[in-house]
Design a protein around this nucleic acid. Structure first.
Lengths: 185, 185
DNA sequence: GAACAGTGTTCGCTTTGTCGAACATACGTT
DNA sequence: AACGTATGTTCGACAAAGCGAACACTGTTC
């Protein structure tokens, strides 16, 4: 962490936290009482902001000050079709791959999603702590939180936090997938 | 914490951490590659430093960035002569006051200190985690870490972290005290 | 005493962060 | 197509942060 300049850390952090909330650069600037240009420069790593500027950003994003200096932890998991830890016997007729084990105190709702190319389905943030699991059955889809979408082919598995804006977009006709929504209760 | 402006937080924090190390403003400025004037303004709450400035300070003081935004926790304990939780029977002939219970995994060395007014005994920092207990037996003494010294009369007890510069100064002739140095092992 | 080495403060001057407007670009609508 | 409204970018002007020198001050030393 000492090898990274604060500029870059902040640049990443601001952009990360901003897109996490689905806020536009302009919107954040307005809310924080800053000029768009200021934010633009900060997010591109050019700049040496003052505390007041950072403070305004942190308050608007509702994060602690130190959050702006942390490296990004995507907290996602991607397992391609033929990867992953296999369970049980190695008989070729029957094969199980553990994609996610269930933590205690969580509830999981299962959905089947069929979608066609052309429209992007945007989902607003679910409650904090919500995690989604997506397995593509057929076709190809671009799935995930705004800042970390992944292109999934048939058989691919993707886990990502869903307490932020995320999208589902079919890249091929007849795309089918299973989405498991996991909430803490 | 939200009611305090970042300026004041930083002002306090810098001064606290600086005196904790026994560094002078000039010395810190030189080590951090900053102008004395800059630090002076910051410590007096006037100013709106840039990240680079703060970063230089944090690195030089060898503290995390967020430390500069925390409120000061002196971590000291002062028990005056006739205060404190008394133990045992309430017979007036025998009275015990618990000043500090012993945490497991600590070693305690006991010293008797006799000192006369006129000279200030400065002690350099002991290893991290070292804590000192001082009970004044006779006279009056000014004791404690640089940023939190206390004037103790006979019977007073003072506990303070000793992993930073601290002083002992007699205010009356014939001052006697007991110092217990506590180290983790 | 005078000279010195420390402390932290205040002063112009230069550098630069911030603002606001104008800008390029993409998208959805009429 | 032309339009309105988003997106984020780049520009010059101004206010302000940073620097370095000179300052006032307190002990310590010869």
């Amino acid at each position: 962490m000492h090898g990274m300049t604060p500029n870059d850390l902040i640049a990443n952090a601001i952009q990360r936290e901003r897109s996490r909330r689905g806020l536009s650069l302009s919107a954040l600037a307005a809310q924080a009482g800053l000029a768009k240009s200021t934010l633009s420069q900060l997010e591109s790593g050019k700049g040496n902001p003052s505390i007041e500027t950072l403070w305004a950003i942190a308050e608007t994003l509702d994060v602690t000050f130190s959050t702006l200096f942390e490296v990004s932890k995507p907290d996602v998991s991607l397992v391609r079709a033929h990867e992953g830890a296999r369970l049980g016997s190695d008989h070729s007729t029957f094969q199980t791959t553990l994609l996610a084990n269930c933590p205690t105190g969580t509830r999981r709702d299962v959905y089947r999603v069929d979608l066609e190319p052309g429209t992007i389905r945007r989902s607003t943030p679910h409650p904090t702590g919500t995690v989604e699991h997506t397995i593509v059955c057929a076709g190809q889809a671009r799935v995930g939180p705004l800042e970390a979408t992944q292109t999934l082919n048939a058989g691919d598995y993707y886990r990502y936090p869903a307490d932020r804006p995320h999208v589902y977009e079919a890249m091929e006709p007849g795309t089918q997938m299973v989405v498991v929504m996991e909430t803490r209760d």
